[in-house]
């Protein structure tokens, strides 16, 4: 097996990198793929919490690159999927504890028996981002439909291109369709117009995402959730399926508006 390394990054913090990593990892595993997710945000680890694996951490990424444990020991198996593993970040160290070369060596080892290696990049453009970018075969840039997030995504894409890892693909997270319809939020077309990258997923704003993350059961396990469905669709697109984007349109069509008008409903 020659696994693919996909780095998930954004530039700006808080746009949903970690949530996206957890959910895409779970969605890929539920499709029967063997997946390892790596939390590269050393010192500010989160991915374990969102995946509900916080209590099982014994060894972490830094232990692994420093050789104080075996690869198997640092790979935490997911409770539900036995083909999904997490390599957590260290909470007590900082980004300098790991080098880009360490990440390349680690992922080269993981490629041997995994289909996908997802790396959750920290925010920013410094060492942590470099660590996450260096081993990538493909980069997924998460952004929100707001001007500041798009600006940072643009900066990150420039750096990715300069490192010859481009062009990367785009995941548009937390889209509020009613705000877009009112012209108060950038639409996916607006974002595409500025960034010019292929969009592999549009995740609608969904309260279930937060409650799912808090409970350690990522939303992609909940197919009643629109966001959960959207994350599953992203995974299926990554596996080569040609899926249309979900109908997010909450804007009432002319017929429905007429029906509402006449039906008084």
């Amino acid at each position: 097996m020659a696994g693919r390394v996909i780095t998930i990054t954004s530039g700006k913090g808080g746009v949903g990198k970690t949530t996206a990593t957890a959910n895409i990892g779970i969605a890929l595993a539920s499709q029967g793929k063997r997946v390892v997710v790596i939390d590269a945000d050393i010192g500010l680890r989160n991915l374990d919490v969102i995946m509900g694996l916080e209590n099982r951490i014994v060894y972490d990424l830094v232990d692994l690159v420093e050789g104080s444990c075996q690869l198997r020991q640092a790979m935490i198996k997911h409770k539900k999927f036995n083909s999904l593993f997490l390599i957590p970040a260290a909470q007590t160290r900082d980004k300098m504890a790991v080098s880009p070369d360490d990440m390349v060596a680690l992922t080269d080892e993981l490629r041997q028996d995994c289909d996908y290696i997802l790396i959750d990049s920290p925010a920013g453009i410094e060492r942590g981002f470099r660590n996450a970018l260096e081993p990538a075969d493909e980069v997924l840039i998460v952004t929100n439909p707001e001007v500041s997030a798009v600006r940072d995504a643009d900066r990150i894409i420039g750096l990715i291109e300069a490192a010859d890892k481009g062009p990367g693909k785009l995941l548009l997270n937390r889209l509020k369709i009613d705000m877009v319809n009112k012209g108060e939020m950038l639409s996916s077309d607006d974002v595409y117009d500025i960034l010019g990258l292929e969009i592999v997923g549009i995740i609608p704003e969904d309260e279930l995402v937060l409650s799912a993350s808090n409970s350690g059961i990522p939303v992609s396990l909940n197919l009643d959730s629109k966001a959960g469905m959207a994350f599953n669709n992203v995974a299926r697109r990554m596996l080569g399926e040609d899926l249309p984007f979900m109908k997010l349109d909450a804007k009432p069509g002319l017929l429905r508006r007429l029906a509402q008008f006449f039906g008084g409903n």
């Binding site: 600006r151 643009d154 900066r155 420039g158 300069a162």
Partner: peptide, 8 residues
Amino acid sequence: RRTLRSGR
């Protein structure tokens, strides 16, 4: 011959 992105 590319888009010149933020910060470049």
